[in-house]
Write a protein that binds this DNA or RNA. Structure first.
Lengths: 345, 345
DNA sequence: TTAGTCTACGCAAGCGCTTTCGGAAGCGCT
DNA sequence: AGCGCTTCCGAAAGCGCTTGCGTAGACTAA
């Protein structure tokens, strides 16, 4: 393992500016107790010499850790990469560094990563990804994180209301309802839901919305096929096979995220089932490629990039007494993957 | 800025194990000079107490910095998110942390980010993204990075041969040639290239391949329209407009990455130009959605995820005397966006 | 036994910074 | 002048760790 290179030390700057180490430190960190004149001189010299404080020393000496830890399921999933993009962008503007790690959709690994970030003494932690309804792991995570906050750590979560922390929450339920309404409005009566992992709160919330839409229109949610597979593209493919096999009367498929919707489309294409002529398909998230799919995907747009920024912004602001929740808007984007229900001839 | 929470110290572990601080340190870091028995006891106690060394103290005291800095254009670009995924995954396996930052396709900002990573004393830096042929910035970057290496920092670059560092290099030229051959084989004689930013070595390399293919078949590269726009989706749209306007005889468009190809497809769709019946389109990279586009995209596959892993792996291995270069394979993936050239009736 | 190795461990000196504390000026007031 | 007060700055004590050095003890060799 390489060592970090040597570098200019504060004492070098101090000597060059003709002041003591302590004064230089105060001048650069903006503490008062230094005359304007001296402070300016020190800042000037430091700039000229290209001095940058050693963050290890600074943090060790009780200073601030300026790195933010970001936990995502997987950064090469467009949903998370857009969130990460937002976080990194805002962090860059604030001269913060972002440490990113994968939870790999595994609650235990997520907990492990969080623990590791805490051990690394990062000052801010952002957890993205829905909560797991695994009570044991979830309550352990809650304990670890609240301990972290008690010690002065800052925390924000994205899309997870199961933690009592500052949170950015997309309105999954309303989004699910909008999708349901849209399809029902097009005359669909046999709707299947490709739901993904049952244990994710994101999934259950979106489901709740879909169910509410059915109820509101006098349809029986109990009769609706709900397929629980992986919350990724492949899960959509597997679920589609099941739908075609076991529920042939289905005329519309709701995938609870775009990744699965892509799997659904790909599977339908293989079966030569025309979308939307014979089958309507909707997704959720509106990842950036949704508009370029074949056919372009009707979906609910979530402002992922903005959500990333909001989460970091929330964590940066002084903490409030009670956890703050910022709800994001959502927007039904109708494209070419949905159409009127085919009339049974 | 929050402070990192307090934590278990090594001295706590040492006392509990009945040894000195120094012995505990040696035991945990696997140094010899400690009896097997004592070492095991210390490790045992440390594990029980859940001790994790304070990385700031460790690094400050001359230990290893276990974080790797990753510079990408933008993490919410699929090409880079897949590379990042590979780096993060391997880093996770090795218990390394990844600090990620955006260069935003701007050489100056990239240099700034690299400087910042160096100032942060990260032990490993991975720079992804093609080089800029801006001689001033590039040579400054070279200087900064070689200084970093001289001080013991580890460096690996992805897709950039302009730096004399360990590098993972996709064979852009051969890939470009494969695309050219493919289209020529289909009978296309009027091929336009949507090239993206002219200053990127990635672009010039891929161009070189395309030109070579034309030459090999007796076609005149000089006659081929080459559009230089931004290396992103929008650039593809802009360039397509220009092609349609200024080069109406064009029957095939080579976009030098998939992002631009998506822009091309979207623009053609708006103009109701059938792909591939009236126009063939190819991309480069094979980002994961390429197969789901409308129509699915013929492209050259680069193993981005693997490239990320390789780069970190390279940086982790002891440095060789001369910079090592690992070439990655490439593979032409023929899909539905290419077909025979339309016969002028 | 005595001298000469080793081995296994503890002491203590830093790494570069922040921060507490105390001292030296400079000020206005009596 | 003398007093207290404020303002500005330097000395020095850590933060938690690694590591060079010294030493006690166990061993071998004469």
């Amino acid at each position: 393992m390489p060592k970090p290179g040597p570098g200019l030390r504060l004492i070098d700057v101090a000597q060059r500016a003709g002041v003591s180490l302590a004064t230089a430190s105060r001048a650069l960190s903006g503490r008062d107790g230094v005359s304007e004149e001296v402070a300016n001189r020190v800042r000037q010299v430091s700039l000229e010499m290209g001095y940058v404080a050693n963050p290890y020393a600074r943090t060790l000496a009780g200073g601030a850790s300026s790195t933010v830890g970001l936990v995502v399921h997987q950064v090469d999933d467009p949903y998370f990469s857009e969130i990460a993009g937002g976080v990194i962008q805002l962090a860059g503007e604030q001269s913060l560094l972002v440490q990113i790690c994968h939870s790999g959709r595994d609650p235990e690994q997520e907990l492990r990563q969080i623990r590791s970030l805490i051990a690394q003494r990062v000052g801010i932690i952002i957890v993205a990804g829905s909560g797991y309804s695994d009570p044991a792991v979830e309550s352990e995570a809650r304990a670890v994180l609240s301990g972290y906050e008690r010690n002065g750590g800052r925390l924000a979560v994205i899309g997870r209301h199961s933690l009592s922390a500052d949170a950015v929450l997309p309105d999954n339920e309303a989004g699910g309802r909008a999708l349901g309404e849209h399809l029902i409005g097009l005359g669909h009566r046999h709707i299947a839901v490709v739901a993904g992992t049952a244990a994710l709160t994101t999934v259950t919330d979106r489901m709740t919305g879909v169910v509410a839409a059915l109820r509101a229109h006098g349809l029986d949610p109990e009769a609706m096929p709900v397929l629980h597979t992986d919350f990724i593209r492949e899960g959509g493919r597997v679920a589609t096979e099941a739908v075609l096999r076991d529920h042939p009367s289905t005329t519309a498929i709701i995938a609870l995220n775009d990744a699965m919707a892509m799997g659904v489309l790909s599977s339908l294409r293989e079966h030569d089932i025309a979308v939307p002529a014979r089958m309507s398909v909707v997704g959720f998230d509106d990842v950036s490629v949704a508009a370029d799919l074949a056919p372009s995907l009707t979906t609910v747009r979530l402002p992922m990039y903005e959500m990333g920024r909001m989460a970091l912004d929330l964590a940066l602001k002084p903490r409030a007494a009670r956890p703050r929740r910022r709800r994001t808007g959502h927007q039904l984007i109708v494209r070419d993957s949905t159409g009127p229900a085919p009339t049974p001839h």
